[in-house]
Amino acid sequence: MRSQEAEDGTAVEHWCLGHAEETGHKRFQAVVTTFLVVVPAAGRGTRHQT
Rank of each mutant, 00 (worst) to 15 (best):
M1H: 11
M1K: 09
M1R: 07
R2W: 10
S3Q: 08
Q4N: 03
E5W: 04
E5I: 08
A6W: 02
E7Y: 10
D8A: 06
G9L: 09
G9W: 02
G9R: 09
G9N: 06
G9T: 02
T10V: 01
T10K: 13
T10G: 00
A11M: 01
A11C: 00
A11S: 07
V12T: 03
E13W: 01
H14E: 11
W15F: 04
C16I: 07
C16E: 04
C16Q: 07
L17C: 01
L17R: 13
G18V: 03
G18M: 03
H19G: 00
H19P: 00
H19Q: 06
A20F: 03
A20C: 05
E21C: 02
E21L: 05
E22H: 02
T23S: 12
T23F: 01
T23K: 07
G24Y: 05
G24T: 03
G24V: 07
H25K: 13
K26C: 06
R27S: 11
R27F: 12
Q29V: 14
Q29D: 09
Q29E: 13
Q29N: 04
A30N: 06
A30R: 14
A30Y: 13
V31D: 13
V32M: 07
T34V: 15
F35D: 14
L36W: 13
L36A: 15
V37K: 15
V38D: 10
V38E: 06
G43V: 07
G43E: 08
R44M: 11
R44I: 06
G45C: 06
G45N: 13
G45L: 08
G45V: 10
R47V: 15
R47Q: 09
R47L: 15
R47W: 12
H48W: 09
Q49V: 12
Q49T: 09
